[in-house]
Design a protein around this nucleic acid. Structure first.
Lengths: 212, 212
DNA sequence: TGGTGTGAATGCCTTCACAGCG
DNA sequence: CGCTGTGAAGGCATTCACACCA
């Protein structure tokens, strides 16, 4: 069993879980790897192999029972546990995250928000009041926060990351277009919206060139 | 020359460009692949190989001239051209995108926004007025929009994608947690914020298990 | 018969390692 | 001497293909 799980498998398991959840709601109780692959833009082999890293969930000739598979995926992915999250930066993006209902549903509770800007401190979004960033180092351990979201300008990103890590955060989702230097035991995931768009635009640039 | 450029190279070129731009601002005119790698959390070999797909920009024994490299990267990445972008969905996330200044700076002009919700239609963010989604099919070609951003709930995402494609959009940035089915000639990039966070949380789940 | 589970083959990307150059 | 540019090697992830099972 203990084979190495490729990067990306976990992310896909969440996609399968999302799809399977829809199916159970629609009272569909069986699905083949081919069908699940079609619904997720992945190959049947990929689906089977991904699941294969964690056990055997299918029935030969019949496919997968969606209720069982759903339960199995939730177990694998730790959907029974919940995590506390802090957002740093209460600008447009930070506020959007605070207001996003999809996170709580998935066991990710935003329990604090911080900003440097006095005009934003005290602002309330849903049930969260934006605090001064000076309170970060006390609030993170006090509220048992293990995930930090960085939604500040690039220049401040590294400083915020340092503060979060010092306060005990173990994972960071970084929206700032900056490369963060962090210790090995801290996991960082970068999401750079303008880079995503730029990469798409490159596709258009290349297509234009091809036309000639 | 015409070797196949791996997926991911382009995205990294944008990272190099960002870093190099900082350096030129700081009046640093030379950098080695090792230093550039350090600043971007990548290996020196990776930096050289990535650049190698597009030509020879370095000087043996000396490194790269930042001004020349900046110009070369901008040329490769098509930073002289600009693209028109539409946002569909004027909720929190859509509004955040409308207000984000980083895009225009990079040649990505949001020129239209659409929503189904009558309460949001007419709302103004910066210089963009939210229009009814019924106007989408006329506005997209009229404004020469080639990139669409989907910031609507999952259930509506496929319908919006269909509308965008029918209207002539060639690339889609999809924030909805849904798998889109699109023709081959349309490029889709998924950004699923809650999945990113969930993937991070899995890292914590596994770490907890290890402690036992 | 239809579909899983999985070793083997393939293909892609990264890393290595070093010749060659300024 | 330091650092680039690049074939060759290595490692990972995906796809293939088929034995096996209900």
């Amino acid at each position: 069993m203990n084979k190495k799980v490729p990067e990306g498998v976990i992310s896909r398991l969440f996609i399968y879980l999302r799809e399977i959840s829809e199916l159970t709601k629609m009272n569909i109780h069986t699905i083949s790897s081919a069908e699940l692959g079609e619904r997720t833009n992945l190959s049947d082999a990929q689906v089977r192999k991904d699941l294969g890293y964690f056990g055997q969930f299918g029935v030969s000739g019949a496919g997968y029972n969606t209720d069982e598979l759903k339960a199995a995926l939730e177990k694998i992915l730790g959907k029974d546990s919940t995590w506390n999250v802090a957002v740093v930066g209460a600008g447009h993006l930070g506020s959007a995250l605070l207001a996003y209902p999809g996170l709580k549903e998935r066991g990710l509770n935003i329990v604090a928000a911080f900003d440097v800007d006095a005009r934003k401190i005290g602002k309330q979004v849903k049930d969260i009041v934006v605090q001064s960033i000076d309170e970060l180092s006390r609030a993170i351990p006090a509220k048992k926060i293990s995930i930090g979201i960085i939604a500040v300008p690039a220049k401040e990103a590294q400083g915020v990351a340092d503060k979060l890590i010092k306060a005990g955060v173990e994972c960071i989702l970084n929206f700032a277009p900056a490369t963060l230097i962090v210790p090995d035991n801290v996991k960082v995931k970068d999401v750079d919206l303008s880079r995503e768009l730029e990469t798409l635009s490159y596709f258009l640039v290349k297509r234009e060139e091809m036309k000639k």
